[in-house]
């Protein structure tokens, strides 16, 4: 991963914030690839934006 991770990158004229797994206590997703020691309760990625039970 390049240094842009942990910052907002400019894409298509828009600012998109990128976070590396394993960093940031409240923003973390699954652990980085190859570090698969996933204990119970491991945080998960943020794809909840739209609830799917309509």
């Amino acid at each position: 991963m390049r240094q842009a991770v942990g910052q907002a990158v400019q894409v298509n004229g828009r600012s998109v914030y990128v976070e590396e797994s394993g960093r940031g206590a409240d923003r973390v997703v699954l652990r980085p690839a190859r570090d698969w020691d996933v204990p119970a309760g491991t945080r998960c990625f943020r794809c909840w934006r739209i609830e799917g039970d309509w």
Binding site: V11, R14, S15, V16, Y17, V18, R27, V29, F45, R49
Partner: peptide, 9 residues
């Protein structure tokens, strides 16, 4: 890694 879609977070 993850990201916030434009407009979020």
């Amino acid at each position: 890694m993850t990201y916030d879609r434009a407009g979020f977070g």
